[in-house]
Design a protein around this nucleic acid. Sequence first.
DNA 1: ATCCCATAGGCGAACGTTCGCCTATGCTGT
DNA 2: ACAGCATAGGCGAACGTTCGCCTATGGGAT
Lengths: 338, 338
Amino acid sequence: MASLRDVAARANVSFQTVSKVLNGKGAVAPATRQRIIEAAEDIGYIPNALARSLQSRSSLTLGVITVDFSNATPALSLVGIEREARQHGLSVILSSLEPDGSDCVRYLRVLMERRVDGIIMNAPAAEEDEEVGRLLRAGPPAVSLHDIAGGGVPLVTAEPEATAALPIRHLIALGHRRIGVVTGLQQRHSAQHRTAVYREVLAEHGLPYDPLLVEDGSWEVEGGYAATHRLLDRASGITAIYVQNDLMAVGVLNALHERGLSVPGDCSVVGCDDHPVAARTIPPLTTVRMPFADAGAAAVRLLLERIASTSPKDVVLPVSMVYRASTASAPASRAARN
Amino acid sequence: MASLRDVAARANVSFQTVSKVLNGKGAVAPATRQRIIEAAEDIGYIPNALARSLQSRSSLTLGVITVDFSNATPALSLVGIEREARQHGLSVILSSLEPDGSDCVRYLRVLMERRVDGIIMNAPAAEEDEEVGRLLRAGPPAVSLHDIAGGGVPLVTAEPEATAALPIRHLIALGHRRIGVVTGLQQRHSAQHRTAVYREVLAEHGLPYDPLLVEDGSWEVEGGYAATHRLLDRASGITAIYVQNDLMAVGVLNALHERGLSVPGDCSVVGCDDHPVAARTIPPLTTVRMPFADAGAAAVRLLLERIASTSPKDVVLPVSMVYRASTASAPASRAARN
DNA sequence: ATCCCATAGGCGAACGTTCGCCTATGCTGT
DNA sequence: ACAGCATAGGCGAACGTTCGCCTATGGGAT
């Protein structure tokens, strides 16, 4: 593979002069410049970014550590990150984690060895890992899309209160009083927080909190399906279900359909995320639009600020309700049959 | 940031000896070894992979060029790639493309500058780009998940014939004779090929091909929804629809539901991919299971072979039908109302 | 004719590694 | 007492850049 020296030999100049020309730096005579450019093209010179980074101590690379992105939501964040990084001329090194996040420290180290200019975390599984927190505070500039143990890392989040409060208020306004909840993995802060907000909003409206109405659906379609059956098997009078993501909501709708319950006639369903399929489920799903891709992009911008200066201010992005056909007023007096 | 020299100074040895110890290469006295290891830990030495790669002319990095992976299927391939790469100790540099693939050449060049050890292509938008083909043949070892203009690049694909033939044969066996098709983007080879196989299978069974039964759904939920309405508006007697991916099938099911057509009573639907939601659509979707993640992993393995030797043999992965509730025998004699 | 300065381009050093070769030391066998 | 050899570790070179400084050349002003 050709180097600056090879180009220089062919153009009869020193290799440093070639460097100047190719980077448009120093003063070089037009004729020489032309000769060098032609020589470079002739032998198909391609600069070596490794050597360049070594010397300039900047790799123009971002490291991303992410939860498994088979699911749409982390994939969307990743898309946002990648796109924004690309627009700033940065490459992205991607590391995804085992479900338990146990390999996070190892991959952080790999990123540090590769001298990435910054790190973006989207790995909720590691949100309680103290060692991860330490490394992120000590290592290159970092930004996270979720909590980091010990703090000290700027966060980009979607309004955490509103994310849960909007759909619950919507259901309460429609007259629902017994609202089931299908949660994400309950050890995740986001799931815990959404459930806590659910309780608070109930309390605000003088409604009782019934733990029988809360089931873990583990973020997955099948989890939502199974959780719904468990919920309806053991609790009565449920006229609405708040589902903490749309993927689970697909399972919820299916379970309700299996039980012969109509949505929203017998039971309203509200999801979260505004996943692409949410617009065409049967019925189309009322949900909370989450700015995943925007959050990824915002994380990159925040990271660039952190790299430039050192102002660690968090970013909070707005969420909004998308009203579709899966929610309606609570059935007059009869509860959902179940 | 600490270097080998810093560790060496602290341990009172030459920096090359530190290198030996940290890489477990040369013969070093246990006492010295210990001293060096402690020194390295004390000052928090982290090797510089950039310098290492420069010297060893191997970056332990794979470049991936992918179509936008907001959709589940390319995301799954990417997951497979990343996981397999990780298991081989390789990092992944991710570049996603604009929908038209126009920036492919640019990102290929970036990957070459970064001296990636190999490139994996999953960018159907660039499958006709001659320049991309040239670069891939001339540059570092490459493997692709789709056609490359001019060939010469090993391919990993899912049995292209079976992918379309299985669902069509299934529908014909159920007695369907007028089978609508909702295709992916028609300029994509895979969509073209599936539609061609559809024609062939019809011909095998002595059934006529009616271009009115084929509509472009552009791979997206909304595209599937709109295509279905167009299809049913202009063609009569359709009792089944073959949809070239599950995401569009969600839209198809919704459109049929809107028209008051029951699935599979009035119209059967068969999808493709076995997307996670396919198991819980209403009704659950009969579909073709596509090995996206496996293909990604296989691509990495094939690439490693190519890097080692130079045997460019393609890999073809099996697909299989998943029978669920969206298909049934054709209605006795009456056609679908539409 | 002299001085000055802008322009063009050369050159050494450094970034942090790995690799191969060389040397000093001390131990074994005769 | 000495050849022979294994062991420990030093050292130079190279990987391909960028950067800053230095020098040769030539033209204009005095």
